[in-house]
Amino acid sequence: MREFSLPALYEVPADGNLTDIVRRNAAQHPDVAVIARKIGGSWQDVTATAFLAEVHTAAKGLIAAGVQPGDRVGLMSRTRYEWTLLDFAIWSAGAVTVPVYETSSPEQVQWILGDSGATACVVESDAHSAAIESVRDRLPALKHVWQIEGGGLDELGRLGQDVTDETVEERGSFAKADDPATIVYTSGTTGRPKGCVLTHRSFFAECGNIVERLRPLFRTGECSVLLFLPLAHVFGRLVQIAPMMAPIKLGTVPDIKDLTDELAAFRPTLILGVPRVFEKVYNSARAKAQADGKGKIFDKAADTAIAYSKALDSPS
């Protein structure tokens, strides 16, 4: 087997962790929109300063609830603004994020939360809360469950009112590069899903080198990414963290059925996904063009795009 390697373009800080990203963005790019959220049907930009404040508010609530450094905290939700917010909040509390696919059965939820030893969990909906409640008696370590759509973030805000910024800064600095950042459970193995422990260094090395290698695609204040992949999968997490490291604006789509419409509304300069997703987007757009009597124009545009892509790949 032949092996190829390239020198690293990004040096991982030995004493740093992923919370450094949001703190650095607020210090160096305070007014830059690093993320956007959908409110009332419209995209609303969130600056680096505002995002850091929201992350700290949620982290204070977790700390006040008794989440300790190194604790595992489950996160079960579709891909949405709050997922990214809570991911950084969990790290800012010194804890480790344990993603759970939002389509998981109660038995799968019980296995992941139980095997990881999660002491708390944030879910998205009533259905998710019900799934956990049905197996709660088999999760002795689980002390808290908050629900995004049930005002859980507001509850965390109230809980953390007496926690100081200094406490969050201390907790956020607890983990070092080689400490666990997340435990991702994969179904790609035989038997029950296995928990893959990924460190802060893993994400720094992967995302830092992606950003540096492809810097023209990650220009701060100019570029943007629309994320629709499940964040319980590691690829989705990479697509979440890399834009934050750049930083460029990140948008999230909870339902892939809305992707085509959101591409037009958000207008990202970059999207990352798997081939099957792009096939669905293409087929949907082509069917709509044909229904509107614009099928020939669409096909010519597609042919032009393919020819342009091939030209970019040629030596000349």
Rank of each mutant, 00 (worst) to 15 (best):
T260C: 10
G251L: 03
D299A: 04
V225D: 08
S224Q: 11
K280F: 12
F228L: 04
T269Y: 00
L263A: 02
F278Q: 02
K296L: 13
F266W: 03
I256Y: 10
P216T: 05
F228M: 12
I271Q: 06
R276D: 06
V281A: 04
I241G: 06
K310C: 08
A301L: 10
L227E: 15
T220W: 06
A291W: 01
P275N: 06
L250A: 11
V225F: 13
L250E: 05
L226M: 12
V277T: 11
A287E: 15
D255E: 13
D292A: 15
T220Q: 10
A305W: 10
R215N: 14
I297Q: 14
E212Y: 06
G236M: 06
A291Y: 03
I297V: 14
P216K: 03
T252K: 05
G236W: 00
E212W: 06
K310L: 15
T252Y: 07
S309W: 07
T304H: 09
K300P: 06
R237P: 10
L250N: 07
L226N: 08
G273W: 02
P247A: 05
H233I: 05
G293W: 09
T269P: 07
L250Y: 05
A287I: 05
K249H: 07
K296S: 14
L259C: 03
P216L: 01
L229V: 09
Y308C: 09
L272E: 03
V277W: 00
T269W: 01
D255T: 10
L270Y: 11
L238I: 15
K294E: 14
E279W: 08
S284Y: 02
F228H: 12
P254V: 01
A305H: 10
N283K: 11
F228R: 04
L238D: 09
L229I: 08
L217I: 05
M245V: 04
E279N: 12
V253Q: 01
V281Q: 09
V225R: 06
G273H: 02
A301F: 08
A285D: 09
C223K: 09
R215D: 12
P243W: 09
S224A: 15
P254I: 00
P230C: 00
L263K: 00
C223N: 14
E279S: 09
K294F: 05
F218D: 07
R237V: 15
L250D: 06
S284I: 10
I210T: 15
L214M: 14
Y282L: 12
V277P: 02
G251Q: 01
K310G: 07
R286Y: 06
S309Y: 08
A246K: 06
T304R: 12
A232F: 09
V239W: 04
V274H: 05
A232Q: 03
V225Y: 11
L227G: 14
T252M: 13
R276C: 01
V274K: 07
S309F: 11
P216R: 01
A301H: 12
I271L: 11
T269E: 05
L263Q: 02
V277A: 09
A291T: 08
I248R: 12
I271N: 09
E279Y: 10
K296W: 08
F228K: 05
F228I: 03
F235H: 04
K310T: 11
A311T: 13
S284Q: 13
S309N: 09
A285Q: 13
G295Y: 00
F298Q: 01
V239F: 04
G293L: 00
V277G: 01
I271R: 00
R213L: 12
C223Y: 00
R286H: 04
A232I: 03
P275V: 06
P216N: 05
K288Y: 00
G293T: 11
K249A: 02
P243E: 11
